[in-house]
């Protein structure tokens, strides 16, 4: 049953010096924030720019700031966020705005590279495949952090990212933690050195904002605590 009700939706338009533009959108059943944005783009203003792909919470491309909070919009029901018949939708914070709801994630992903977020192979196809027990401590630690969808919600929610442009941020560090726990990886020393440098894991203030907002209920702050410990041990042993 379609509800005969409409809401006022304020959507960010333009670049950093833009402004909010208000649209009236009819409410529908099981309507997500992404549905609302799509409705505006299809019915009212085809020039509205925004990103999405999977619509089922897997690709991580639809994150926006909804009423001041970073959220994945394809899995957020509008009924959960409407306040007094209004909702405000803007681009994610901590990244430059390209246009409307689209922000520039180049730096966000560059930091994944800086954090050595890519697997460093140490064997060839001629070596036997390594057996990793699902119950191994390293595998359990990696599993707890592995479901990240690269949505940058945590990155947008982190005060330390806002204060320090050099800081790698929760997502890249969380990714690095999964690799630090990968016993097959051959680039651990370089990775720990990158993570222990200025702007690395020790810049985190353990605010828990990343964990509070992560739509996948991950805990980047726990991963970062693990990195702080590992790199500190390596430093004390003189390995860094």
């Amino acid at each position: 049953m379609a509800m005969a009700m409409a809401i006022e939706v304020s959507i960010w338009r333009g670049r950093a010096n833009g402004r909010y533009q208000t649209f009236t959108v009819p409410l529908d059943q099981s309507q997500t924030v992404l549905d609302v944005v799509t409705w505006v783009q299809r019915k009212l203003d085809p020039t509205l720019a925004y990103r999405f792909a999977c619509r089922v919470g897997m690709c991580g491309s639809c994150a926006m700031t909804v009423n001041g909070r970073p959220r994945w919009t394809c899995r957020t029901h509008i009924s959960k966020v409407v306040e007094a018949g209004r909702v405000e939708i803007g681009p994610l914070a901590n990244m430059p705005i390209i246009k409307d709801l689209v922000c520039d994630m180049a730096e966000f992903f560059a930091k994944w590279q800086r954090a050595k977020g890519a697997f460093a192979p140490g064997k060839s196809r001629h070596d036997p495949i390594e057996r990793i027990s699902p119950a191994a401590a390293e595998r359990v630690a990696a599993d707890a952090a592995i479901e990240c969808i690269n949505c940058a919600v945590c990155y947008a929610a982190c005060d330390t990212v806002r204060w320090n442009e050099n800081y790698l941020g929760p997502a890249a560090l969380n990714r690095a933690w999964t690799l630090v726990n990968d016993v097959r990886d051959a680039g651990q020393r370089e990775r720990l050195a990158a993570l222990a440098a200025d702007g690395g894991c020790h810049a985190c203030h353990s605010h828990h904002s990343c964990q509070e907002h992560c739509p996948k209920a991950l805990s980047p702050v726990r991963s970062i605590a693990g990195l702080k410990r590992r790199s500190l041990e390596a430093y004390v042993r003189g390995e860094l």
């Binding site: 440098a197 020790h202 790199s231 500190l232």
Partner: peptide, 8 residues
């Protein structure tokens, strides 16, 4: 902040 300052 790097690991040395953190440790200190």
């Amino acid at each position: 902040m790097n690991v040395r300052l953190y440790l200190l």
